[in-house]
């Protein structure tokens, strides 16, 4: 379990993190969202025991990060921002070095090293020095390092940054697999990632928590929640359809995109407008290419609460 109490970090003139309190239980994958500079990395560094908080406490599995740092660090796998490592080392030696520091021994050491090498597809670069690796490989070496000791708690600062879509998919699959019996915190500014792996999201802006909810509920705060989007087959109907939609009592606003002949009807306060819209379309004889219900846009919520 991860727990923080009123965690704050102030530098001389700036407050990086202010009064952050949350806890994460097993089975939760917490996405830490926020614009660059919002305090995500500082918060994670405080959890990992790298930055000392100005005020407040952080606990990893019940161990205070400041007063019992070793016990906390033993239970933690941490991927620092940018996945730093020792560039001149070969991948195999680097992973062995971490395994030694993590006190992995005998058959278990061999088994865990084989597992991370296979899982993160590092077999082809084992004898290469880390400096010569591509960004994607370096990130995977960093991830391998974080999970080699099979820790109950994982903190990953931007785990998929710099990976190509296939590699992102692989890493997300890995996170989803590990989510069953671990506590995972990831930071990201890629919102699709939150949908893909997280069952909880905390949005942080200017050092403070501004939202803490499931991704679905967060998306429901969007103006687009329950909105109906339609694409017309005949562009000349655009004006007529727009007027007809705007006339519906439960529709608050209609947005038009002329480029792809698409209209989006936004409901008044979360009302269900799909039945009314589809009835309207069939009774007025609109030619539709597509009609669908929006589940809310996380990026729009993100922008409205962090801007």
């Amino acid at each position: 379990m991860i727990k923080t109490e009123h965690l704050s970090k102030r530098y001389e003139s700036v407050t990086a993190v202010e009064d952050v309190t949350f806890d994460v239980r097993p089975g939760e994958v917490l996405g830490f969202l926020g614009p660059n500079g919002a305090g995500k990395t500082t918060t994670m560094r405080m959890l990992a025991g790298f930055v000392t908080p100005t005020a407040g406490k952080a606990f990893i599995c019940g161990h205070d990060v400041e007063t019992e740092p070793l016990a906390a660090k033993q239970r933690l796998g941490y991927l620092p921002e940018g996945a730093p490592s020792y560039g001149e080392m070969r991948v195999r030696r680097f992973l062995e070095f971490i395994a030694d520091l993590r006190r992995l021994e005998g058959p278990r050491r061999r088994e865990r090293l084989d597992y991370v090498i296979q899982r993160l597809q590092l077999a082809s670069v084992l004898e290469q020095s880390i400096d010569t690796l591509s960004k994607g490989f370096r990130r995977r070496v960093g991830l391998a390092q974080a999970i080699v000791h099979d820790p109950p708690v994982l903190i990953l600062d931007e785990p998929t940054d710099g990976l190509d879509p296939n590699q992102k998919f692989e890493v997300r699959t890995l996170i989803n697999e590990m989510a069953r019996d671990k506590i995972i915190v990831i930071s990201t500014h890629i919102l699709e990632e939150v949908d893909a792996v997280c069952n909880r999201a905390i949005i942080i802006a200017r050092g403070r928590i501004v939202a803490d909810d499931t991704p679905v509920k967060l998306a429901a705060r969007s103006r687009y929640y329950n909105a109906v989007s339609l694409q017309l087959a005949r562009p000349e109907q655009l004006t007529a359809v727009r007027a007809a939609l705007a006339a519906l009592p439960s529709v608050a606003e209609v947005e038009v995109s002329e480029r792809d002949v698409r209209l989006t009807a936004l409901p008044r306060s979360g009302a269900a407008i799909l039945p009314a819209v589809s009835e309207l379309a069939s009774s007025k004889g609109f030619a539709l290419k597509e009609l669908h219900l929006e589940s809310g846009r996380l990026d729009e919520v993100f922008r409205s609460i962090t801007a």
């Binding site: 025991g49 620092p80 520091l101 993590r102």
Partner: peptide
């Protein structure tokens, strides 16, 4: 890399 080293036990 100091961050990596200092977050090991």
């Amino acid at each position: 890399s100091i961050e990596l080293l200092m977050t090991q036990p």
